[in-house]
């Protein structure tokens, strides 16, 4: 009997590269939504409609990088990983997460392709999806968003301003 439990080197490299990129994009996405929840009228509206204390976990695969967020008052904060989040989105592979996080497919397409599993209320998730779509309109180049979003939302201010706030904070 031949065991075959060793992942080959190129898959290993691919996995860790994708994990690294995922970790960075997750951070940018989180900071982006946090900034936009204060500055973009639409995301602000969505965010205010969430119940206080709502917790969301986004996992890029069963063992990949993840991010846990919670609404605390009027702020979105990063919290430590919890098994009991209200909404848990788990990509079925790091490759699937990579497709979405690098803007190769949109969230709607990813849903259509069963790229992630969802536990929690689906209506609540729709609001989060809209926020991600709007955030992507800012964070990704238009060439990309035109292809992956059903509708590219009008930006209320420039992408540069969002990135400046994400990384510099002012």
């Amino acid at each position: 009997m031949v065991m075959n439990n060793n992942i080959s080197i190129h898959k290993k490299i691919s996995n860790s590269m994708k994990s690294l990129v995922a970790r960075i994009v997750l951070f940018v996405l989180y900071r982006g939504i946090k900034v936009l929840a204060r500055e973009d009228s639409r995301i602000m509206g969505e965010f205010q409609s969430w119940p206080d204390g709502l917790s969301v976990v986004l996992e890029t695969s069963y063992n990949g990088p993840s991010i846990s967020l919670q609404k605390k008052g009027d702020r979105l904060v990063r919290v430590s990983h919890s098994e009991n989040a209200n909404i848990r989105i788990t990509f079925r592979s790091i490759d699937a997460a990579f497709l979405v996080l690098t803007g190769q497919i949109g969230v709607a397409r990813a849903y259509a392709e069963h790229r992630f599993m969802l536990s929690g209320d689906i209506c609540q998730t729709m609001s989060i999806v809209r926020c991600i779509d709007i955030a992507e309109s800012y964070l990704f180049p238009r060439l990309m968003t035109r292809r992956i979003l059903r509708k590219v939302e009008k930006k209320e201010f420039s992408t540069i301003r969002v990135y400046r706030k994400i990384f510099v904070g002012v």
């Binding site: 969230v107 709607a108 849903y111 259509a112 689906i122 209506c123 609540q124 998730t125 729709m126 609001s127 999806v129 809209r130 979003l149 059903r150 509708k151």
Partner: peptide, 13 residues
């Protein structure tokens, strides 16, 4: 309606 899960697969936003 816009929060209904079915909206996510509608071809037009």
């Amino acid at each position: 309606a816009i929060n209904d899960g079915a909206m996510i697969v509608n071809p037009k936003a």
